[in-house]
């Protein structure tokens, strides 16, 4: 209960784990570009191959990827059926009069479903192999050049850092408040949806009040420790772009190039 963090990080020592978070963010962006460039199902083999290689190199068990896909299973089925129902085509496989099942519809439904699976699996590879702290660091530094356009890279990263820090604290606190209200006879388990939502008020209000107080006290503590925004700030842990990072980016770019060539050749 106390160790829930945003995303699910699996600590490890693999080639992928050791990459600079910026590299991994870049890899994910290129991977997403790949899946979106593809318009035909068989070309998805290229990003799929990339994902498999990444998975093997990371040593992450396939179970984690399947877990990441679990929450979207209903969305997947829904999208699949929707496309099956409404995609028109010429190769009729089954004719019910009011509706025809076409080969195009099957192909299109499969294509979209596989693409979503690949996207979610790829994105979860990033959070599975990168600790939230490293991810925050990566985001801050990757977006730092955008500061000239007033993009609040530092503020965003600081918000993420604080959120990560306080998730376990607030979880503990909500558990305590819940116990206390249950001791006063509160019932969170019975009644219809409306009643249950209403019964959460005695938990939510103290939690909000406490979060505000925490925010207030934290702000004072940060100020006392000379915090004055991102201006002129340094970091103890410097991110280092190593040979492995270069290699990873080059391999990814090769995949993109191969895909583009294939797409042009088989247009």
């Amino acid at each position: 209960m106390r160790d829930i963090t945003l995303g699910q990080f699996v600590a490890g020592d693999s080639f992928i784990h050791k990459l600079d978070p910026r590299t991994k963010i870049g890899m994910m962006i290129l991977y997403i570009v790949m899946t979106f460039l593809v318009k035909k199902i068989y070309f998805l083999a290229i990003p799929f191959a990339y994902l498999v290689i990444e998975l093997i190199l990371s040593g992450i068990s396939l179970r984690y990827i399947l877990n990441a896909l679990k929450p979207i299973r209903f969305l997947l089925i829904f999208m699949f059926l929707l496309n099956l129902l409404f995609t028109k085509g010429e190769h009729v496989w089954l004719d019910l009069g009011f509706w025809q099942l076409t080969g195009e519809a099957v192909l299109q439904s499969c294509f979209l479903a596989v693409r979503i699976i690949l996207l979610v699996a790829g994105a979860s590879m990033l959070t599975l192999t990168t600790s939230p702290i490293a991810l925050t660091d990566g985001i801050e530094r990757l977006f730092a050049p955008l500061k000239i356009f007033h993009f609040p890279a530092h503020e965003l990263a600081m918000m993420m850092t604080i959120a990560l820090r306080f998730v376990p604290t607030l979880m503990d606190e909500s558990e305590k408040i819940r116990s206390a209200q249950m001791s006063r006879g509160a019932d969170f388990e019975s009644g219809n949806v409306f009643r249950r939502v209403k019964s959460m008020i005695p938990i939510l209000i103290p939690l909000f009040v406490s979060s505000f107080r925490k925010a207030d006290e934290l702000a004072i503590a940060m100020e006392s420790r000379c915090y004055h925004g991102g201006e002129g700030r340094t970091r103890m842990h410097q991110l280092k772009f190593r040979l492995a990072d270069l290699l990873a980016i080059l391999i990814t770019l090769t995949f993109v190039a191969v895909l583009i060539v294939l797409l042009v050749l088989f247009k």
């Binding site: 606190e173 305590k176 408040i177 001791s183 008020i201 005695p202 209000i205 103290p206 009040v209 406490s210």
Partner: peptide, 9 residues
Amino acid sequence: FQYPEYQLF
């Protein structure tokens, strides 16, 4: 509980 005032709502 400890710090019961934190449960006022």
